[in-house]
């Protein structure tokens, strides 16, 4: 009996050793598998096949504004069985938007989302794509006379109204000069914006005051144009304007930095655009009195919605309007929260 028990113990010992060994090997294999997965060697996660491929072509794809727009649009695209790529000038590349359009057309993508900037030949490219059956959705800036399928953004009238209000609010007795920094080719829409700011200021100015409203196109051809252009404004013999209206993120940040560098805080009032970290910090400190921002979430979602609708139905709304937020020191906290949610 005793002896039997002993033999059983031996068998148990053996089994235990084998089980332990097996367990350890399994654990090791499992852990190893995880490491390999992290290495991406055996990953299948990103290899899901989607139906459509869209491209988003913007000015500077590294700006936080476009990143936020892209991220929202990308999520929306994935939800609609599509993959969205972001194209745009990046350090080291010098393709124009027309080049990117060419590439997208050659790559036979299913749809293009384009930030139109009035660049030469770009409108023809939109038409070429449309003729090849690739729908083009313009965002933020419209190309109304092209064959684009749809526009997602705010119309120039509304934009002008909003800007006009903000400029008028900032006009006081010391205001002598207002400079609007345009970021696209001179054309109707921009003129409208300029015109509305002009009329708003005119209503506000007192009888003996003569406010000079100027506009300057700083649409950059090469990379550091914006920075240089703004510095030269601050260094000009007549001095910087009292109110500086910026229409994009990069311009706003450059103007803000120049204002600090030239020690003109309080003397130059900047109307900013978008809610990047730098701009929001400035608003929080009161250095930038107001900044305007289009709802990036809406831009992203609507642009994909337009493409999806075109794919499924064959046509889409020609105009999607998005909200414009006005962020001042009083309501920046709310906006912050909203951004965090996104």
């Amino acid at each position: 009996m005793n002896r039997n028990q002993r033999i059983h113990r031996e068998i148990w010992m053996l089994l235990l050793a084998i089980v332990m060994g097996g367990l350890f090997m399994a654990l090791m294999t499992f852990y190893y598998g995880k490491i390999m997965e992290n290495a991406g060697v055996s990953s299948n996660e990103l290899n899901h096949v989607y139906k459509y491929q869209y491209e988003m072509i913007v000015d500077s794809r590294n700006s936080t504004f476009w990143e936020a727009v892209y991220e929202n649009a990308r999520q929306e695209a994935l939800a609609h069985d599509a993959v969205l790529e972001l194209k745009g000038s990046e350090s080291g590349e010098n393709y124009s938007k027309a080049d990117y359009m060419d590439m997208s057309i050659a790559a036979q993508v299913d749809g293009i989302i384009l930030e139109y900037n009035g660049e030469e030949g770009l409108q023809e490219k939109i038409d070429e794509a449309a003729n090849k059956g690739i729908p083009v959705v313009t965002i933020v800036n419209d190309a109304p006379i092209s064959l684009r399928q749809s526009f997602v953004g705010i119309n120039d009238y509304q934009l002008g109204q909003t800007y006009g209000e903000q400029v008028a609010d900032l006009v006081d007795d010391h205001t002598k000069r207002i400079l609007v920094l345009l970021n696209r080719e001179q054309e109707l829409g921009q003129n409208q914006l300029y015109g509305q700011i002009y009329s708003a200021v005119e209503n506000k100015e007192s009888s003996d005051q003569k406010i000079k409203i100027q506009s300057q196109n700083i649409m950059y051809q090469s990379q550091f144009d914006t920075e240089e252009a703004i510095r030269s404004i601050f260094q000009s013999p007549e001095g910087p304007p009292e109110i500086l209206v910026c229409l994009d993120e990069v311009t706003t940040e450059c103007a803000y930095q120049a204002m600090i560098d030239f020690n003109l805080v309080g003397e130059v009032k900047i109307i900013g655009y978008y809610t990047s970290r730098t701009i929001m910090d400035a608003v929080k400190k009161g250095l930038i009195p107001v900044t305007l921002a289009m709802d990036v979430e809406q831009i992203g979602i609507y642009s994909i919605e337009a493409l999806t609708e075109y794919m499924e139905v064959g046509r889409a709304n020609s105009y999607y309007t998005v909200d414009m937020d006005v962020i001042t020191r009083d309501n920046w906290k709310q906006q912050e929260k909203q951004d965090e949610k996104q």
């Binding site: 990103l46 290899n47 899901h48 989607y50 491929q53 050659a106 790559a107 036979q108």
Partner: peptide
């Protein structure tokens, strides 16, 4: 030649289509 989220695969697809055009 399929549409995938994986940027490498997507690039491959783009190259393939572009090459066809080319």
């Amino acid at each position: 030649e399929q549409v995938m989220e994986n940027p490498v695969k997507l690039l491959e697809k783009n190259i393939r289509k572009m090459s066809e055009t080319y």
